[in-house]
Write a protein that binds this DNA or RNA. Structure first.
Lengths: 334, 334
DNA sequence: TGTAATAAATGAAACGTTTCATTCAAAAAA
DNA sequence: TTTTTTGAATGAAACGTTTCATTTATTACA
């Protein structure tokens, strides 16, 4: 079999009887006479020419790659976000370099450097360590949710405060009297913290006594939840709370499982609203998880990409908040 | 601010007082005298040198990229597979180009070409169209599950036949008398088809009458399932089946929801075993979905990458089957 | 008709590596 | 000591683009 060496621009130029630079211009959409254009197009077709992205990258010092640094793609919110980012990039002819950093600082930094080495056009970061100091000034970067004290980077997030208020008000609307909050502590400042503020604000507004179940990443949260349930049992076996706003759908789901195990009914005894809008299998109603404040994953991804590639990311208001929505999913009465 | 032009190998050579080629050798792990090595290392550190992957790619006509073509990352099985592929590549210093083709033929082909253009080291394909004819002979490619008549490509899959047998036998072991199969038809030949064969084999072995609920991708499967339940109600309101083996966890989950809506108890009245081993949030027991035959996602991903990068993918037996496992998840009695 | 202005085409140079044919130095063999 | 052998060091060439200073052709104007 003859050698399959792919044709180069030089070959095309020779075949078409034009100069190398003319082919380049034509490829890049610069003005070329109709006559040459036809010849070059014919040559490209006959030689089955494909542009070499490495030569382009070397020359231009940039790729058409965008890196997404994310903890993993197991968590449904992350995987859904990843999916939408990929789509937003695809629409713009960009490609996605997926970096699962596991939320580990060292890996996040490693990927950050790798991305820069690979001359990616930009980075979207959904990270769990304070990488602010490691981010080159020269590379466009958009942060999801997180806030870095020392670096003023464009950020995109859901309107967490409004979402938390909405959750409480929906619970009240559905008849709850005592909504508690499954609170997640993070040592990293970010927009998700506003869920707590929103809950407190809504409680104050409606003259409710705030109450918390404090969960953490590396803690035995099941025990904490069980303990909470135990301590909130009335003498007649009923519970002293009837509503739960969970920091994420995940915690809401776990809590719901525990309640049912303990013989309580969801949503009849306790109504639960989570946060994220997880919809496994991405399939309308089928995959619905629990009632939730839904983050607009597609809009969030689109916005991240838009800001990243707009080129003037430093001119963009540094925080973009997108609206959330309530969606019932079987753990509430409506 | 001074220009931040990144240092090149030439700069390092000059700084270290050695030849360009020596730096290259040292970077690539070829023998270099201890003295020069020290000097070069110092220079690299002081100049903060990072190798330019585009120059490498141009020279070597290859990248360190591997493309994964997959329908999406929403489906938990896909997203988990993606995650593990990323990890397997990371361990080998390779990077993941994620291509979500939505199972659309035209997009799958488009991504295939893009990957080849980008001189990826290889492609892992989990596709939903007959792309066999579009695959260049020159690029390493490993197929997950699917079989292409016209191209003998290395394939990796779970042992679906054994898994289906195991499902039926577990149901019997847990006391079921009449396990039915939620069957999924695909017009593309692949290993997942063997689930049907396994079910039939197990039925024959245990003298059971096979029975099916036929689901499809773009059909109103809910209606089909409801209809099945209706038709299998005995006069006393009980059901004439007591076990379900679902082609995927997804269908098992949907069916379980319907059964509960109809007032039946899972697992007391009907036990359900799905296929895939979906574990949302990737968190041991917490995220457990339903009882399932678990595909060894990490081993599958690892194997795909291993074969892909072994270089002799054409020497590898064309089909690699990995063993599956049963895992209880609340929709069975054990 | 001659000159100026405009537009297109040209091809060498540069991007930062790796490779390879040479050169050089040191150690081993004669 | 002289010759061979060995192994490291060298730097030019090549990978396939894009860019840019020139050249060439065309049109507009006086």
């Amino acid at each position: 079999m003859a050698s399959k060496k792919t044709a180069t621009m030089k070959d095309v130029a020779k075949e078409a009887g034009v100069a190398l630079g003319t082919v380049s211009k034509m490829i890049n959409g610069l003005p070329v006479s109709e006559e040459k254009r036809r010849k070059i197009e014919a040559a490209i077709k006959s030689l089955n020419y494909e542009v070499n992205t490495y030569a382009q990258g070397l020359r231009a010092q940039k790729s058409n790659l965008v890196a997404l640094i994310i903890p993993n793609t197991n968590n449904p919110f992350f995987s859904s976000f990843t999916n939408q980012v990929e789509y937003a990039l695809y629409k713009r002819g960009k490609k996605l370099l997926l970096c699962c950093a596991g939320g580990i600082a060292q890996k996040e930094i490693e990927y950050l450097n790798m991305a820069i080495n690979n001359k990616v056009d930009g980075i979207i970061a959904l990270t769990y360590s304070d990488i602010g100091n490691y981010i080159s000034q020269d590379i466009p970067l958009v942060v999801f949710d997180r806030y870095f004290e020392n670096r003023d980077l464009p950020r995109v997030a859901s309107d967490n405060f409004a979402g938390a208020c909405l959750a409480v008000e929906k619970l009240l609307e559905f008849g709850c009297r005592h909504p508690v909050y499954i609170r997640f502590y993070s040592f990293l400042p970010g927009e998700a913290d506003k869920r707590k503020d929103g809950y407190l604000y809504a409680c104050a507004k409606h003259h409710l006594e705030p109450d918390f179940i404090d969960v953490e990443n590396s803690k035995n949260n099941i025990a904490v939840m069980k303990d909470f349930i135990e301590k909130h049992k009335n003498k007649d076996g009923t519970l002293s709370f009837d509503g739960v706003f969970a920091h994420t759908d995940y915690y809401g789901y776990i809590f719901q499982k525990l309640l049912r195990q303990e013989g309580f009914r969801v949503p009849e005894d306790v109504q639960i609203i989570g946060f994220d809008g997880i919809n496994i299998f991405g399939n309308a109603d089928d995959g619905l998880f629990i009632s939730s404040i839904c983050q607009p994953v597609d809009a969030l991804a689109e916005k991240c990409v838009e800001i990243l590639l707009s080129g003037n990311s430093s001119l963009t208001p540094s925080l973009t908040l997108l609206p959330v929505q309530y969606r019932g999913g079987g753990t509430t009465l409506e």
